[in-house]
């Protein structure tokens, strides 16, 4: 006899095991590997590294391309997020707020880039960028490419957000004498706010972890965090160094995610109280 209580427990155990498999083990391993002392290798006969040392961290910080990579990635990502968001706006607004012929086709075309493997897109896309002579401005080119690649996400999320805006809220605000700005604040903003934050977050993360284009356009010389990580996985594979890099790559994203989660919760009181309106 399966009671809800047992089912609950089973699901809880499942959730915890999944979380351990997916998160706790990889992260623990990464942390442990990043703390291995170069003089005393972590051999399979030891459960833990024999000596804990922060040497790798300071070494990677001083003697790798980590600093320019961080600078590049964290300048690219917010710019890509903001610009993608801005550029997606007219299409998303049109899809979300207007009925027109061929709307479904437009939606499909806007999403199409998502189904092609990113490396395939990257190769063809960069060849176009070379042809139009953009590729010499590496930062701008990668930024441009990221905007183009991540537009589908932004359009998708924002068009759904605009669909959520209720016409009766718009009309109620107008009926009570609201200016266009006041209509936006009263009727549009509360409905689209979660979507705006989600779009910025997703494009930011997508851009930070994007490898293919950053690699093809950027090599050699222009590094981002993913190209640096892949480089240290490839030519001179060094697990402790890669561990340091991947932790550094993951850290800001986790912080950002928690921050936005908090923001989203406070943004929607209807959701927080668990009652729809």
């Amino acid at each position: 006899m399966i009671t809800p209580h047992i089912l609950n427990r089973a699901l809880m155990i499942l959730l915890i095991s999944v979380a351990i498999l997916w998160l706790v083990i990889p992260f623990t391993m990464a942390v442990l590997w990043s703390l291995v002392d170069p003089a005393l290798p972590w051999t399979p006969d030891n459960l833990l590294p024999p000596v804990i040392s922060t040497y790798r961290w300071s070494y990677m910080w001083e003697n790798s391309l980590l600093k320019p990579a961080l600078l590049n990635s964290y300048t690219l990502a917010p710019l890509a997020a903001l610009l993608t968001f801005a550029i997606s706006m007219p299409t998303a607004f049109a899809i979300g707020r207007y009925d027109f012929q061929g709307k479904e086709a437009v939606k499909l075309v806007a999403l199409l880039p998502l189904v092609v493997p990113s490396f395939v897109t990257a190769i063809f896309f960069t060849s176009i960028l070379y042809q139009i002579g953009l590729a010499q401005y590496r930062f701008a080119t990668i930024l441009f490419a990221h905007i183009v690649l991540f537009l589908p996400y932004a359009i998708r999320i924002m068009s759904v957000s605009f669909e959520q805006v209720r016409i009766d809220h718009i009309n109620a605000a107008r009926d009570l004498g609201a200016s266009p700005w006041a209509v936006f604040r009263a009727a549009y903003w509360p409905a689209v706010k979660p979507g705006v934050l989600a779009t910025l977050l997703i494009v930011f993360i997508k851009s930070v972890e994007e490898f293919a284009i950053a690699y093809i356009v950027g090599q050699p010389g222009f590094v981002t965090i993913p190209t640096l990580v892949y480089a240290s996985l490839g030519q001179d594979f060094n697990r402790p160094n890669a561990a340091v890099l991947s932790l550094i790559l993951a850290f800001p994203n986790v912080i950002l995610m928690l921050f936005l989660e908090r923001l989203l919760k406070s943004a929607n009181p209807a959701m927080a109280s668990g009652k729809g309106c």
């Binding site: 209720r166 009309n171 605000a173 609201a178 200016s179 006041a182 009263a186 009181p269 209807a270 309106c277």
Partner: peptide, 30 residues
Amino acid sequence: ERRDTALCFQSYALFPHLSVEENLVFGLRQ
């Protein structure tokens, strides 16, 4: 916006993120 009418909506169309008080004075603020 500038017509001196006020409409009570079938759906009520209250602003869900504003308190009852803020909903009530919305038109006066505008």
